[in-house]
Nucleic acid binder design. Structure first.
Length: 581
RNA sequence: GCUACUGUGGCUCAAUGGUAGAGCAGUACAUUCGUAACGUACAGGUUGGGGGUUCGAUUCCCCCCAGUAGCUCCA
């Protein structure tokens, strides 16, 4: 049986395999530190973890020790035996063992739930299973790291020590996984951002990124693309201030629901807040005049810079910052326009993500504990979002209680190089804000009505999106985004005149060109140009200068041979116009 | 914010209880060389900040700041 090939393609098998390994981890830790209390130890996407409550702090050396102990348990190939106990006996067993966390888990199980345990050797753990038949079936194990994690994910409760590990049916597969992780690290946008001189974050401003000239090119290209696409889709653009009076934030509900994340300031003794969201500004902009029902839908976009006080430990390169620019828009509409507008935004997001070749998944986030509005309004809003997704025939998962305080949302998540997902696009349906700000329009009945509003972003934040793009393309950006699109390298200084002339001409055609006429060997200049991830590199020597041609090399396709300057110009301009990836 | 870890010249890293070294990048000189690093020289650091222990700390201790991983939270 143990010789049977373990099918990791089967998610259930994989999960069962990893879950068993987490029990082996727990057994090893209990052997080495009998006083350790066990919390929980599930299989996760890339492996498994187990949480322990233990005075002794695990070090990297400890991980090695534990791993050795795990090997012994695997070699002993204990069978995993399941047994069930009535509730009181189960509690007695765990209380006797001093496993207070397990007792709490049992006490929280529903009355009619079967309480099962798994035993391997002298180790017993509360567990619903399933498990492998014996510990000897586990082949390649590696403990990855140790980190803190709150008991039951509650920051008010004790922080436990969590050991992360992974395991595979063979050493080769484990090695492959480790190698993949190494490769992914090379794509880290923080590393590439530094190497390509795109952006920087200094101690003087944690979470407040600086964009350098090359990063600004990417930013500006994204923004002009954004404007173009919004124009096409009937959006108008506004800009609202960064700082607004306290009253506004009371009206919007931010003061009550979002204060912890806001920065405040005073002007002439009056309280002001730095905006954490753009919507209240958009509300004021709406209120500047009267509207007819014929004016809807009204789509108002804003590239709005917001500031949010994120916890220091949450900051992460460009992905999680304390100031970012949302590619925001607020759509005001009539009740019967809701679904169509949501579908329109879904299509828009899908168009943009597909352009870059992104895979994404969607979550529907429902009413959080701290929220405004009635249950009926929330139900209606959630149903509208779900209906739009259903009309598109798109899959989504429900993310219970994770909505914004003013309404439910559809969140679009993109993956980074390490498989972590980041929320980028979001569509939020809001019945609250228009009421609170007393927004109105005149309906066909001649009466005043309150419009319905959508908040939405496509990129999410320009910063995060650039981070994701950087990792997705490993710094080899599509030509239209590349900070330098073509780099010309001279073989010797003799060809500098020709190179500069070509450079000038390509620049006049609208291309971003760099010419390297330095007195260095061509191999050296070439190496540097490649390290800079330049999409196109041309070496210019005697041959090219005489024929007035270019020998071009693509970072993606390799050598493309000799072409006329015209050809190169046309080729690149077309690639840019096509936004080819 | 919490837990653990880390913090040395622009970058990557080394070293030691006795006031720091290398490679890359930079500058100068030399070289004019056709597809991933020519050579020589120079310059560059009060070892994140503050305090303490010590005859002496960058190395040990404490506090703070920043970063990394994870948790919590989130675009």
């Amino acid at each position: 049986m143990a010789k049977e090939k373990i099918n990791f393609e089967d998610e259930q098998v994989k999960s069962c395999y990893r879950h068993t390994t987490s029990h082996i981890l727990a057994q090893a830790v209990k052997k080495l530190w009998p006083e350790a209390k066990l919390a929980i130890g599930p299989a996760i996407d890339n492996g498994f973890y187990y949480d322990f409550d233990l005075e002794h702090k695990f070090s990297d050396q400890d991980l090695m020790k534990i791993q050795k102990e795990m090997k012994k348990i695997i070699q002993a190939s204990y069978p995993l035996e399941r047994f069930e106990l009535p509730r009181d006996e189960a509690i007695k067993l765990m209380t006797g063992a001093g496993e207070t966390y397990k007792v709490e888990l049992i006490e929280d199980l529903p009355e009619d739930e079967v309480i099962s345990f798994y035993k391997q050797g002298d180790f017993v753990d509360l567990c619903a299973g399933p498990h492998m038949e014996k510990t000897g079936q586990i082949k390649a194990v590696k403990l990855m790291s140790v980190a803190g994690a709150y008991w039951r994910g509650d920051e008010k409760r004790k922080m436990l020590q969590r050991i992360y590990g992974t395991c595979f049916p063979s050493q080769a597969e484990l090695d492959e996984y480790i190698e993949k992780l190494e490769e992914a690290k090379k794509r880290d946008h923080r590393k590439i951002g530094k190497e390509m001189d795109l952006f920087a974050i200094y101690e003087e401003g944690p979470g407040f990124p600086f964009f350098m000239p090359k990063g600004m090119i990417i930013r500006n290209e994204l923004e002009s693309f954004w404007r173009q696409e919004h124009n096409k889709r009937g959006y108008q653009e506004i800009k609202t201030p960064l700082i607004l009076n306290e009253d506004l934030w009371h009206t919007s509900g931010h003061w009550d629901h979002y204060e912890n994340n806001m920065y405040f300031t005073k002007i002439d003794d009056a309280d002001y807040a730095i905006k954490p969201m753009n919507c209240p500004g958009a509300m004021l902009a709406y209120k500047r005049k009267m509207y007819s029902y014929r004016d809807f839908p009204m789509r108002i976009g804003e590239l709005g810079q917001v500031h949010r006080h994120e916890l220091s430990g949450a900051l992460h390169g460009l992905m999680r910052v304390r100031t970012f620019t949302q590619d925001d828009a607020h759509i005001f509409m009539l009740p019967d326009q809701i679904k169509e507008e949501i579908v329109g935004v879904i299509d828009f997001i899908d168009y943009v993500y597909n352009l870059f070749g992104f895979k994404y998944h969607v979550e529907l986030s429902t009413k959080p504990e701290d929220s405004m509005g009635t249950d009926e309004e929330w139900t209606m809003a959630i149903e509208a979002l779900a209906a739009a997704m259903d009309q598109k025939g798109m899959e989504y998962v429900i993310n219970e209680g994770d909505g914004a305080f003013y309404g439910p949302k559809l969140d679009f998540h993109l993956e980074d190089s390490l498989g972590r997902t980041w929320q980028c696009g979001t569509i939020q349906l809001d019945f609250q804000m228009p009421q609170r700000f007393d927004l109105t329009y005149i309906g066909p009945d001649g009466e005043k009505h309150t419009p319905i509003m959508i908040h939405r972003v496509i990129f999410g934040s320009i910063e995060r999106f650039i981070g994701i793009l950087t990792e997705h393309f490993a710094g080899k950006f599509p030509l239209w985004l590349a900070p330098v699109q073509i780099k010309l390298l001279t073989v010797t200084e003799k060809f500098a005149d020709y190179a500069l002339e070509v450079g000038k001409r390509l620049e006049e055609a609208g291309l971003r060109v760099e010419v390297d006429v330095r007195n260095e060997k061509i191999g050296y200049k070439l190496r540097q140009a490649r390290n800079e991830r330049n999409p196109y590199i041309c070496v210019i020597g005697e041959r090219e200068a005489e024929a007035r041609s270019l020998t071009i090399r693509s970072s993606k396709l390799g050598e493309l041979g000799e072409m006329s300057i015209d050809e190169v110009e046309r080729k690149l301009l077309k690639e840019i116009a096509d936004k080819a990836v």
